[in-house]
């Protein structure tokens, strides 16, 4: 096999990420009990973003992929951000 293969991710790393994901889920549920006004949605979205970053980086091996994959991912996220941004520019300032 001529192609270079990404290294094998150890079991321990995956277990660590799983525990982190469970703790973050607990934190989301706990914070949601308090009424922080509009802040609630931003806290929830921040934790969800952090959780997805862990899943993408380790479970989906993005951390170990080449720059090509990382730039492609950032481009896709940038496109999504533009969609959301332009939509709210219209919705909020109409």
């Amino acid at each position: 096999m001529s192609e270079e293969h990404a290294h094998i991710v150890p079991y321990k790393t995956f277990m660590g990420i799983w525990i982190a994901l469970l703790i973050l889920t607990g934190v989301t549920v706990w914070v949601a009990q308090y009424n922080l006004g509009p802040l609630n949605i931003w806290v929830a979205l921040s934790i969800a973003t952090l959780k997805s970053a862990l899943v993408v980086a380790v479970f989906m091996h993005m951390k170990y992929e080449s720059w090509l994959f990382k730039i492609a991912l950032l481009s896709a996220l940038a496109i999504l951000a533009i969609f959301i941004g332009l939509t709210f520019f219209d919705v909020l300032y109409r």
Partner: peptide, 24 residues
């Protein structure tokens, strides 16, 4: 196949707080 499964998990990571939690 695993990447596809992780995506299913990723989407739920956002569905759960947005639909089930944010409004409680």
């Amino acid at each position: 196949a695993g990447l596809y499964w992780h995506l299913v998990d990723l989407i739920w990571i956002f569905i759960f707080p947005l639909y089930y939690l944010i409004l409680h």
